[in-house]
Design a protein around this nucleic acid. Sequence first.
DNA 1: TCCAATTATTCTCACTGTGAGCATAACCAG
DNA 2: CTGGTTATGCTCACAGTGAGAATAATTGGA
Lengths: 320, 320
Amino acid sequence: MPPTADLVLGLNAVIVAVTAEVPRVLTLNRGEQPALPFGPLDPVQDRTLELGLRRWVSEQAGLSLGYVEQLYTFGDRNREEDEGSGEPRVLSVAYLALVREEEAETVAGAQWTDIYRFLPWEDWRRGGPRILDRAVVPALAKWRDSADHRALRQVRSERIDIAFGLHGSPRDGYRVLERYELLYEAGLVAEARRDRQLSQARGDEESPLPGRTMAFDHRRILATALGRLRGKIHYRPVVFELLPPTFTLLQLQRVVEALAGVPLHKQNFRRLVERGGLVEGSGRFDSQTGGRPAELFRFRRDVLRERPTSGVGLPVHPRE
Amino acid sequence: MPPTADLVLGLNAVIVAVTAEVPRVLTLNRGEQPALPFGPLDPVQDRTLELGLRRWVSEQAGLSLGYVEQLYTFGDRNREEDEGSGEPRVLSVAYLALVREEEAETVAGAQWTDIYRFLPWEDWRRGGPRILDRAVVPALAKWRDSADHRALRQVRSERIDIAFGLHGSPRDGYRVLERYELLYEAGLVAEARRDRQLSQARGDEESPLPGRTMAFDHRRILATALGRLRGKIHYRPVVFELLPPTFTLLQLQRVVEALAGVPLHKQNFRRLVERGGLVEGSGRFDSQTGGRPAELFRFRRDVLRERPTSGVGLPVHPRE
DNA sequence: TCCAATTATTCTCACTGTGAGCATAACCAG
DNA sequence: CTGGTTATGCTCACAGTGAGAATAATTGGA
C-alpha cells in the first residue's frame, strides 16, 4: 500500500451551541458561501484525530471544545469535474462538538448561524413548517412524477413518504440526512445544481428551495450532525453540555426542543427528567420567569452510573 | 492544505455472518495474528468509499456484500514506535458488512471466526461468562487498587462498574467498545502490552486475559462493530440481512441472541416481531424442529414504510 | 398404540412508561 | 386585590413489556 499523495485529509467540525432557543452552528466565510470550520491533521504532532481537531479549533477560533464526537467520514467524489482534473481527492472526517452558551463568543470571521436557516424544513416547533407544503412537497411530487417508469415512480413515492412522513408514515425527527439527500438527489437544493454543473446542462431543473446553501458538502455534514444529535439526546444526557451549570427546567426543555425541532409537553418533560434522575434541585430559585419563580436545577452526574443509557427521550407523537 | 504524503488511507471491513447460532467475522492470516480484511482506496477509480470497499472485497474474497455501513475512522497513533520512525501514519475507515449464511463460503486464506473467541466476556447467552468472575473482574480490581491516588481509584472504580455492570449498575450490552478500551487501558489485553512494548518495560503488568489477540487495532474495530450492531437491531430490522429469505421464528431469535449475546423470552420475542409487523407467515412449515412444526416466516419489507424505526428491541433486563 | 419429550403457539396478568390535561401554587403588574 | 403568567403536583387512560401458564402438534421409543 503506497502512500497516496493524490489525497488530502482534513477534519471538519460541526460546533453547536443553543442560545435563546435557537440552535446555532459555527460557520466561517470561505468565499461566497458559509462553510464549516475545516483544519488539517498533523500526522506528526497530533496523536489522535480528536486531539488534532481540538488543537486547530483552539488555535483558529479560540474555542475550547467540551463534548466532541466523531460523526462520519466523507470521501465521495461528488463533483464530476474532479474526475479528470489533477485535483486531489478530499477526505474529511467530520466531528460534532457541543459548547456552552456562555463560551460561544463570536470570533473574527466566524459567526453563529441558526441551523434551521440551512435546513428550514426541520423545525416543527410551531407546527409543520410552511415551506414544506408550499415548496418541498410539491417539488418532490414533481420529481416523483418526472420518473420515466412506473416502478421508479413507485420507489420515489415511498422514499418521499418515509423521509418526510407523508401518507400515513410517521414523521421521524432523526432522518435529517435522509431528507437532505432526497432533496439533493431530486435536484432541489442549490448544491445539487452546482455539483452537476458540467454534466447536466438540461433545463428541466426546479428552482432551488429556500434554505441557505453551504460550501462543498457542508450542508450534508450539518444534516448528519443534526440527525445524530437528535438521536443522541434520546439515550445520553448530552443536552447538559449546552447549558450553564444551573438552569430551570423550562430552559432545559427549550434547549431540547430547539435541537429536536418539536414542542414538548411541559409536565411530562418535568416528570421525565426528574423521575429519570437526570437532574436535582439546587434549592435556589430564578425569579425572572414572569410568573412563579422556577427552581434552579443541576445535572446529576451520578445518573451515568445508575442508568447508563438515559436521555431525555423525545416523544414518538409530538404535539402539533 | 498540502497533500499529506506521510499518511496512508485504507478501508477495513468487519464482515459478519451468523451460522449455527455462532456470530462469525471474516478474518485473514496476516503474520501471526488474525486480521480484518484491509484494502486501499483508489482515489481515481472509486467514486465513493463504500464502492471502493465493495470492489476490493469482491476482488479479494469473492464476496458480494449486502448491507454495508460505515463504522468509524481510526487514526490514533497507538504505537510509540511510530513517533520518530519514518513510518507513515495509517488512517483506516472501518465498515460493518452483513452477509447471509449461505453466501458465507470460506475463501482461500480467509476464515470465519467466532466473534466471542476475540471478546469472550461479551457472550451472556448462558449466563455470565466464567471468564468474568474468574479473570476479568479480579484483574480490573487489581488495576483499580494499583492507582496511586484515592481519587483515581474512585474514578476507575466507577468506570469499571459502569462498563461491566457491577455493584448495582445495570449491564449494558452495547458498551462493547467501552469494555474493550477499559481492558486495554488496564493493560489486560495482549494488544496493550504489545503497543506499550518500547515505552514500558515495567514488570508490574498482569498476564493478558483469555480471548484471542488480533493484529493492529483490529480487536478494537471488532468491538466497535459488535456494539454498533447490537445497538442497530434495536431500531432497524438489520437481522434479516443475515437470514435466508424464509425462516422460523426460533431461527430468527437465535440469530438475534447470537449478536446480542443474551437469551430472550421466546413468547415475548414472537409477540414483538409478529405484532411489530416485522414478519409475515408464509403458510409453509418446517418439520425439522424436533417438536411441533414451525411456520416459515419472511421479512415484511413494508414495515420500513409503516414504522420506519422498528427493530427487534432487546430487553433491558435480560433473563439470566 | 400410547406415552414422554420436544418445540410451537396462544393467552393472561402485573407493572411501567408515557401522552394528555386538570388543578393548585407563587409570583408580577396594574 | 385581581387578572395574567409561569411553576408544580396529580390523575387517568392506554400501550408496551417481562414472566409464565396452558394448549397444540409433532417425534421416538416403550
